[in-house]
Amino acid sequence: MIDGFAKDYLHNDLREMREAILWKLEGLSEYDIRRPLTTTGTNLLGLVKHLSLCESRYFGEVFDRPFPESLPRWDNAAERGADMWATEHETRKEIIDRYRRVWEHSDATITALPIDYPGQVPWWPRPNVQLFNILVHVLTETSRHARHADILREQLDNSTGTAAKYATPRHDAAFWEAHRANIERAAKAAVKKSQQLASS
């Protein structure tokens, strides 16, 4: 009983996080979804491309159910990092559609196998796993990148949230300036307090 509940619970959370990732691209220009927004080049469309590779391997190769399309491999030094950004030849539609096809493949694996079904992750120190381990791992990875996407999107247009229905209402510049000033004041006060405690 608990096994079925756990599998459904994790699977539903994974579905929600996938949708959140794609929602972060909605309404943005081609440039904004592709451009590097951190020092290391993190970008929104690259996150989608990366998660496609991640899911396709974990719910595919690990359980001997390979995804039928060719994707970059992270164990090939020549292709390392290629999954984290989109070339000028790759379209938004192509990358998003592939991600959705990966979902279908992953969902078929999750549905077909019991939660304790064994698999092998040769690149892990402890390669023997079960579907449960992989569900938790991929949900964690997807959630982590959804948080990245949330921050990247906030940098672009101040919108936050995990889905359109939960989007944080936008405020004007004066609201955010006052909000940030309040946080800055608290940070400086905390430093001053810690310095006073250290010197006493």
Rank of each mutant, 00 (worst) to 15 (best):
D3H: 13
G4K: 11
F5Y: 13
D8G: 12
Y9G: 06
N12P: 00
L14I: 09
R18Y: 07
I21K: 01
L22Q: 06
K24P: 02
K24W: 02
L25C: 04
G27M: 03
L28F: 05
S29K: 03
Y31F: 06
I33C: 07
I33P: 02
R34I: 04
R35K: 15
P36S: 11
P36I: 09
L37N: 01
T38G: 08
T39L: 14
T39Q: 12
T40K: 11
G41T: 13
N43S: 14
G46T: 11
G46N: 12
L47H: 05
K49G: 01
H50G: 09
H50Q: 10
L51M: 15
C54N: 13
E55K: 08
R57K: 07
Y58P: 00
F59N: 07
V62K: 03
P66V: 11
F67S: 02
P68E: 08
S70Q: 13
P72C: 08
R73G: 05
R73C: 06
A77Q: 12
E79C: 06
R80E: 12
D83K: 10
M84G: 12
M84P: 03
W85A: 15
W85N: 10
A86L: 13
A86K: 14
T87H: 13
R92W: 14
K93M: 11
E94T: 15
E94W: 13
I96M: 15
I96Q: 15
I96A: 14
Y99C: 14
R100G: 05
R100T: 10
R101A: 15
H105A: 07
T109W: 06
T109Q: 04
I110Y: 05
T111I: 04
A112H: 04
L113M: 08
L113S: 05
P114A: 05
P118I: 03
P118W: 02
Q120R: 08
Q120G: 00
Q120L: 10
V121H: 02
V121D: 01
V121T: 02
P122Y: 01
W124C: 00
P125L: 04
P125S: 06
P127C: 03
P127G: 05
N128M: 04
Q130G: 03
L131R: 02
F132G: 00
L135I: 01
H137Y: 08
L139Y: 07
L139H: 06
T140R: 07
T140P: 00
S143I: 07
R144H: 12
H145E: 09
R147V: 09
A149M: 08
I151V: 09
L152R: 02
L152I: 11
E154A: 08
E154Q: 07
Q155W: 00
Q155P: 00
Q155F: 03
Q155E: 07
D157M: 02
T162P: 03
A167F: 05
T168P: 00
P169W: 04
A173L: 09
H179Q: 09
N182G: 10
E184L: 13
E184I: 13
R185V: 00
A186I: 12
A187L: 12
A187V: 11
K188I: 06
K188S: 13
A189W: 05
A189K: 08
Q195L: 15
L197K: 14
L197G: 02
A198W: 10
S199C: 08
